[in-house]
Amino acid sequence: MVDPLLGIGLGALFTLIAVTLHVTRGTEWTPTEDISEEILERRAATVAETDFPEPMNRAIGAGGGAAGAVAAGEAGGELEEAGAEEAAGDDPSAIPDDEAEVFEIEYVKEGTTIEVKENETLLEAGEEEGWDLPYACRQGQCISCSGQITDGGHSEDYVVHHTNEMLGDEEMSEGYTLTCVAYPTADFSLQTGESP
């Protein structure tokens, strides 16, 4: 049998040794370097750029257009065909480059004025300049790409929105526009990254 006094003494001795080792080694914890941004950038560099909206973006109803097109195609008929032709006729991107008018657009935050053709969106023109402008859906279904025309008046006085499912007349009367679907029809100044 072990003497209880000896057991208590050994326990106290081991506790004292553990505390001493802990204090002498130090208690400060130094975090490792955060490399998450570097890893994300490296992964993003390996992904090819696409012409379609990426899944899980912030677009409302993203991807719903394809399902609607199938349903309309199944119904068939002259009305659907006429509607499709009319929609294609309203698309400013269908204007040939040699027939497109050119407008002077001042990108205020970017600090420069560039020429933008009437068959090119404000977002596309900025990206061609190498600017990292905000966007998500590229279909007028969210406000990630929104900007504000600072010349006063209704945004439709300066641009044509090919598709616009997010901005109402009240926002557009304050000059707000969706740069991903906005085609210029006049010269103006634009504040990118501004939303209602």
Rank of each mutant, 00 (worst) to 15 (best):
C142Q: 12
T179W: 11
E165V: 09
E101W: 07
G68N: 13
H162F: 08
P96R: 12
T185L: 01
M166T: 13
T150Y: 00
E156G: 02
T179D: 09
S155R: 01
T185Q: 06
A125Q: 11
S173I: 00
Y158P: 07
S146T: 11
I105H: 03
P184W: 02
E170F: 07
E174R: 09
S93D: 08
G140T: 10
G152I: 01
V181Y: 11
G126D: 06
T112C: 03
A72E: 12
V159K: 01
Q141W: 11
T177C: 11
E120W: 04
S93P: 05
Y176M: 05
I95A: 10
S189G: 00
E170S: 07
E174D: 10
Y135G: 08
S189T: 00
E110P: 01
S146L: 10
V160C: 02
C180P: 14
V102H: 02
T179G: 08
C145P: 12
E120N: 10
A182M: 05
T177V: 15
A66S: 13
G77N: 13
G77K: 12
A136Y: 03
L167V: 07
A72I: 08
A186H: 07
A94C: 08
R138L: 02
K117F: 13
E104H: 09
Y135Q: 10
A82T: 02
I114R: 13
Y107Q: 08
V159C: 00
I149E: 02
E124C: 04
L122G: 03
T121K: 04
H161G: 12
G175C: 07
G73S: 09
W131L: 14
Y176G: 03
H162N: 10
A94D: 14
L123A: 02
V108H: 08
I95Q: 11
